[in-house]
Design a protein around this nucleic acid. Structure first.
Length: 505
RNA sequence: GGCGCGUUCGUCUAGUGGCCUAGGACACCGCCCUCUCAAGGCGGAGAUCACGGGUUCGAGUCCCGUACGCGCUACCA
């Protein structure tokens, strides 16, 4: 999907507006949507959900999905974050048709539109310093007044302006909002929302260094990129009237808006770093599957009848903005885990074996100890026990190194009456060369032992399990023995017997 | 403070005026299966649809108010 990150990122470079492909005219539709993250941190769950809804909407309508990096915050934007976004989207299979565009590459274009507004008297230069602004805001707040910019620079005379310039003050450009009337947003998910213009103030559209602020850049970009539907988090709803006013001032037609409800943490505040792993990479590293993440995230804010499991194609086919709910959703890791397990169980053993090896390798285990076929068997016996792929490590690391007894396992299982005898008999059985070392044969013989000793099966199998795995919980015993191999099994049994003798003496 | 949005089982949701004595999924509990853990099967508990008023023959569904939560109110996005 990505030919070369750097090439892609440069796609919008130049002093001219980025070249934008024509809409997919052959289908006769013009749905063009975008995901526009700011690269100020990693790609998080909330962002992915927004990206996903945009992507689904585009794919459902055979439209165009655009990736745009909103990097106008020069302080906090990083190249690293841009790569994290690109990698994350690629990994999830949320492929984009145009971009990634970067706003820093389009500075000349914002400036051009800003000049136009300036010359039409719809915007003005403001020389107030951040410090002064901050001070006035504080005072207003103390007096319980609404902290609004007082427009003192709106009426600056040319000579006053010159005086400011002479003092070395670098102006920002403010958009002049009308106090009259109302701005109505017809939001696809929220419905009609009415804002009184008098509650808006003259916000900064171009900073002193010529870099646009969000509200301005987003409008120019969405227009230039001919975005038909702006689908984004509803934290942007309150900003929408400012943008609509800009659309009108610039003579642009407005797109459709669809504001998605937020994703919340368990404390019901917007999901963030504070809530633990929210970076998409963290989920990838823990062994969550893209299809599980996508399925789960699709259900956060959207639903389709009673269905909970969806393939990507079904999602594309069934998704609609009308099906998006209005209220925020709490992110539930437990349900994601369950769903991930469901998808893990759908893999063939060949597929799962490959995935599993990757995680074992990352854990530093010596993969070369075993052959291909061995890993397929491992996959087979662990498949229904995995909820995340990384679980494979804790479930099977004992195959790769000496037994480390789990705390309590020895006391609870091994140091019980009759255990040495059980283990010794097991050694006897398993060292019999007439025994073909396959789980089925092993099971037959060991069950014979159970019968012979007249014990409950558990009392025979649990000691053996602890002896060879060090744990009270493991994959099925007979398969585990087969996979461990005769030598290692006998060795471990022997060690356990020895351990018990020492304890006795 | 102002403005905006939201409110159905613990969680995600179905529900668009009568089919709702409110359905499904996760989580939880019990039973079955069973060498452990899972997976699977069966069953259970869990929501006076935030609260209060209306409209209507009839409201979770429409209207108004209140409460609570969240968001915006930056030379962040």
């Amino acid at each position: 999907m990505i030919e070369s990150d750097s090439d892609r990122i440069r796609a919008g470079t130049g002093n001219e507006p980025a070249k934008l492909a024509r809409p997919g005219g052959w289908m006769g539709n013009n749905v063009r949507v975008r995901f526009a993250p700011s690269p100020t941190g990693y790609l998080h769950i909330g962002g992915v959900r927004t990206a996903l809804f945009n992507w689904l909407y585009a794919r459902h309508h055979n439209g165009v999905f655009i990736l745009r990096i909103e990097d106008t915050d020069r302080e906090r934007s990083t190249e690293e974050a841009i790569h994290a976004i690109i990698d994350g989207m690629s990994w999830l299979g949320l492929n984009w048709d145009e971009g990634p565009f970067r706003q820093v590459d389009r500075l000349a274009r914002y400036n051009e539109e800003s000049e136009r507004l300036l010359s039409e008297g719809k915007a003005y230069k403001c020389y107030c310093t951040p410090k002064e602004l901050e001070e006035r805001r504080k005072v207003a707040l103390e007096r319980k007044e609404v902290p609004k910019y007082d427009r003192r620079c709106l009426t600056l005379t040319p000579s006053e302006r010159q005086a400011c310039e002479a003092r070395g003050l670098r102006p920002v450009t403010r958009f002049h909002c009308s106090d009259e009337g109302v701005t109505v947003i017809n939001d696809i998910v929220k419905g009609e929302v009415i804002f009184e213009n008098k509650n808006l103030d003259d916000f900064v559209m171009l900073r002193a260094d010529g870099i646009p602020t969000y509200n301005f850049a987003v409008v120019v970009d969405d227009h230039d990129m001919r975005i038909s539907h702006v689908i984004r988090g509803d934290d942007h709803l309150s900003n929408t009237p400012r943008q609509v006013l800009l659309y009108q001032a610039l003579g642009y037609s407005t797109p459709e808006f669809a504001h998605l409800p937020m994703i919340l943490g368990p404390d019901r505040t917007r999901l963030s770093k504070r809530h633990g792993a929210t970076a998409i990479e963290a989920y990838r590293d823990e062994g969550y599957l893209p299809r599980a993440l996508i399925n789960y995230l699709a259900l956060l804010g959207w639903g389709y009848e009673d269905q909970t499991l969806f393939t990507k194609d079904e999602l594309i086919q069934k998704f609609s903005l009308e099906g998006v709910g209005k209220s925020p959703a709490v992110f539930d890791p437990a349900k994601l885990e369950w769903m991930n397990g469901v998808y893990i169980r759908e893999f063939s053993v060949e597929e799962l074996a490959e995935l599993i090896k990757h995680f074992l390798r990352n854990a530093g285990l010596p993969l070369e100890m075993y052959e291909e076929a061995w890993y397929r068997k491992l996959a087979e016996i662990t498949q229904e026990r995995l909820t995340k792929l990384s679980d494979i490590v804790g479930l099977s690391d004992f195959f790769f190194h000496r037994v480390q007894y789990e705390t309590g396992a020895v006391q609870k299982v091994l140091k019980k009456e009759g255990v040495p005898e059980v283990l010794e008999k097991a050694v006897e059985i398993l060292s019999d060369n007439a025994l073909e070392f396959y789980s089925y044969e092993i099971e037959k013989r060991l069950r014979g032992l159970v019968e012979e000793m007249g014990l409950k099966a558990k009392l025979v199998f649990q000691p053996i399990r602890v002896a060879i795995t060090g744990r009270t919980v493991s994959p099925p015993l007979f398969e585990t023995i087969e996979l461990l191999g005769r030598d290692a099994t006998l060795e471990r049994l022997g060690e356990a017997i020895h351990l018990l003798e020492l304890a006795d003496g």
